[in-house]
Design a protein around this nucleic acid. Structure first.
Lengths: 339, 339
DNA sequence: GTGACTTCTTTCATCGTTCCCCTATTTTGT
DNA sequence: ACAAAATAGGGGAACGATGAAAGAAGTCAC
């Protein structure tokens, strides 16, 4: 039960280790006969190169790291899907870490990936991350880095995002187009940029279409989940606001609100039209089916890896690549929760 | 911009590489003074051991592989969550691959992980996997292996599962207890054992409670998703069966069925009570909220890694560990879709 | 003074590949 | 026929860390 190594094969065939190595990699300076013999013996012994040794020599591990806030999340798991699909095709494996929205953990994980010497890193920032020193550290070490979705302008690396502001603008416009005059907004916490951008898009859409923006109609959902949506909706009702439209920052929050409306016999969409954001499974399964903004998670994952891959290749060839920013298309999905 | 190595530190301090190595690992045979000097210099230069070299020497990478059918899936992403949380605490990283329910891909991925020399492998089988040669190959190589959820009896390794049969029995019993007399079942495809087990649990519950099992009331959902649930429900109605209960193999399928029932003005739970399986987000967000079986994904992930960890430790110490099977508790979650 | 012991440090061999740089041998050109 | 070039293969030093074993230096006892 010994490990099969190049040495083993070389001894069996009475040739040098070098020749075996070259033969297996189809170097031109080995004769066909030798190559054939080596390959046959390698197959016979079921030889697989020791990747630890290869890593050490080549200084590459064909492994990339991915840090995301949460795994159990429709959008992020779609991104993971896109990343590992694409990565596998290019011969890369993906190590996944989740920051649980914690800056401290995120920082530690970055260091961990660096010490593991992954060939590249992809990250979507935790909400609580304000200092980006750890991310710039990655750049300082010349490790390829790509950020997606939750990014920071303070890090000069390639990024893949959607235009949150425009998407929110379109979502709000859809509500306006369908006749809504007083539109509330359930926004996220103050920190992640996406939450701000979506809010700004909402506000801009109102202003551009002759509706006055009323800050009282904006509610904050700390975790943008189902329960948050419920409580914001309850608060909205308790506050006695008469609205005919709601744009919620996530589908979960929208779903929570819809449940509350149903409980209170408020008809969706006749009394209040509701727009969500993300297009999770959920949105088609609830009643009424939720109109929402499709956020292309899988595409984002694929694109992110693609950019990372280019950077890794450039690095290998000692080239420098100017960071690029890719903005992916979103689209409005009209279902039954809007007219 | 050179890499910092032991050699570097040794030269700076005018001592040998070995001493540096030992000092950093707190070997007892290095003087305190030297240790302090080495540590100071290491910190000053920001030294991190080259993990490639360490891997090669120690023949360990502190990395484990995980193969699952799908990432974008509430249950599996919960398992991932449990695994990487636990793994990280023990200093292990997790490489995730998804088989997309394909046997061919799964097999390739197993070989890939073996060639990458991960310290252990965790897997939940693809539905289409019947031959388990690739899994036994893992065992032959003495690589620690743990299977979870979708397992095979033909592989002698540790496993973490739920008792699908009993859980389905309990779910069906809940329907019976709430007064249902004619209970339909939306089952999964023929292949994965879970699907069979749940079906058997359903059948047994009927028989044990004096209800006759009617094969005509069992519908097959190929992908057990929302659309499958819808079409099965439509078929059920078209077939003209009068039922007062439905046990669907997944929450998604149950949600699809409920939508159809609502469209046809069939009241849930008054006319038909519905039970799902898994307890996804979804189940609390739809109307009526879905009664279901809670499947502890996070726990399963944690437990699986724990078992793998034990095996990896045993291997390092050249001990042999008898495979164990852990059966996790499920519980019935009563919501509004059942009486 | 010499053997026996500590205590600290170095030497050396490895892990398994890769790749630069040689040496033979054969082929080609003129 | 002989220099130049092409072909085939081998030697051996890395890569960076580890650890068994040997060496050096100092301490102590009798």
């Amino acid at each position: 039960m010994k490990e099969v190594t190049l040495k083993q094969i070389a001894e069996n065939l009475g040739i040098s280790i070098t020749t075996v190595s070259k033969a297996l990699k189809d170097y031109k300076d080995v004769s066909k006969a030798t190559k054939a013999a080596v390959k046959a013996e390698a197959k016979r012994l079921n030889f697989t190169p020791n990747s630890f040794a290869v890593n050490l020599r080549t200084k590459e591990s064909k492994t990339v790291g991915l840090i995301i806030p949460e795994v159990v999340h429709h959008f992020f798991s779609s991104v993971i899907n896109g990343i590992i699909d694409k990565a596998e095709k290019k011969g890369y494996l993906v190590i996944i870490l989740q920051s649980n929205e914690s800056y401290k953990l995120e920082k530690k994980q970055v260091e961990l990936l660096i010490s593991k010497r992954v060939d590249g890193i992809m990250i979507s920032m935790a909400n609580t991350t304000v200092d980006v020193g750890h991310l710039n550290h990655i750049r300082d070490l010349k490790i390829p880095l790509v950020m997606f979705d939750k990014i920071s302008k303070l890090v000069a690396c390639s990024k893949v995002i959607i235009n949150d502001r425009m998407a929110a603008y379109e979502a709000t416009k859809h509500l306006i187009d369908s006749g809504c005059k007083r539109i509330a907004h359930f926004r996220g916490a103050l920190l992640p940029q996406n939450s701000i951008d979506r809010f700004l898009g909402y506000k801009k859409a109102l202003e551009d279409h002759g509706l006055t923006f009323d800050p009282a109609l904006v509610y904050i959902c700390e975790n943008v989940d189902y329960d948050n949506g419920r409580s914001a909706a309850l608060q909205l009702i308790a506050d006695g606001h008469k609205i005919d439209g709601l744009f919620a920052i996530t589908d979960m929050a929208a779903a929570g609100a819809i449940t509350v409306f149903k409980e209170r016999n408020i008809n969706v969409p006749d009394d209040i039209s509701v727009m969500g954001f993300s297009n999770w499974f959920l949105s088609q399964a609830i009643t009424p089916a939720l109109s929402t903004v499709d956020q292309p998670g899988y595409e984002m994952g694929k694109k992110s890896f693609k950019l990372l891959y280019k950077e890794m290749r450039a690095k290998r060839e000692d080239r420098y690549l100017e960071p690029v920013i890719r903005v992916l298309e979103t689209k409005i999905i009209k279902r039954q929760s809007t007219k």
